[in-house]
């Protein structure tokens, strides 16, 4: 465990806490894509199938459980909680996310480290995580405004991605056996998607204008 990875995990956790706080404090999920949140829940459920078969550390197991529970809790709130449900921007959140799930699964069947149930689902979760933010970006683009907490949520998610890349660079140079090319390439794609968002988010903040993402 290096400092970059720990900081990456912490910012990832903070992003989820910020989102839960926003939903809990404002009883509103306006500006949040349910589809992205559903994809994240699927990502964690598919990736952490090893929770009962491989023990890494207490830290690792606890974080896995926290990520699964918090992502499922967010989806549950947005779907079932009466007040929160009402604030959901359903007509703006129209990205067909099932296509992403299907495409990532087919890709995982083709590109994986080993053709086993667990390995295919692991690769699937990595690919799906890389593109899971797309419905959220589409929603932000359509609504054209980002409230503070939603902005911070996306900011912390982006920080997590950037720190994980530093972690991989660090591990590449310090660990003889480190080769996670599936995770690294997918991570770069994911970070590029965020970089695009950050650029327009920065512009809108600088000009004090509404966030305007190009199609």
């Amino acid at each position: 465990m290096n400092a970059f990875r720990l900081a990456g995990d912490i910012t990832h956790l903070i992003s989820i806490l910020v989102l839960l706080l926003k939903i809990y404090a404002t009883k509103s999920c306006s500006g949040i894509s349910l589809k992205t949140q559903e994809l994240y829940a699927v990502v964690f459920l598919a990736r952490y199938l090893d929770l009962f078969t491989d023990f890494i550390s207490v830290y690792n197991s606890v974080m896995k459980v926290v990520f699964i529970l918090s992502s499922v809790a967010i989806v549950w709130c947005m779907r079932r909680h009466r007040a929160v449900k009402r604030s959901y921007d359903k007509e703006l959140d129209t990205f067909r996310h099932y296509y992403l799930v299907g495409a990532c699964f087919v890709f995982a069947l083709l590109v994986h480290e080993k053709f086993t149930f667990q390995e295919v689902f692991w690769a699937f979760s990595i690919y799906l995580e890389a593109v899971a933010i797309i419905p959220q970006l589409v929603l932000l683009q359509r609504s054209g405004n980002v409230d503070n907490l939603t902005g911070q949520y996306v900011f912390f998610l982006g920080a997590y991605r950037a720190l994980y890349i530093l972690n991989w660079i660090y591990r590449y140079f310090t660990e003889a056996k480190f080769s996670r090319w599936i995770a690294c390439i997918s991570g770069l794609v994911q970070t590029a998607l965020y970089a695009d968002f950050f650029y327009y988010y920065f512009l809108s903040w600088k000009n004090n204008a509404k966030l305007n993402l190009p199609a």
Binding site: R5, D9, H12, D50, D54, I56, S57, N60, M63, K64, F67, E113, K114, W122, Y164, N167, K177, F178, S179, R180, A183
Partner: peptide, 10 residues
């Protein structure tokens, strides 16, 4: 065949 390293990242 090389044993793949354990998946220790989250």
């Amino acid at each position: 065949e090389l044993e793949p390293p354990p998946k220790d990242e989250l």
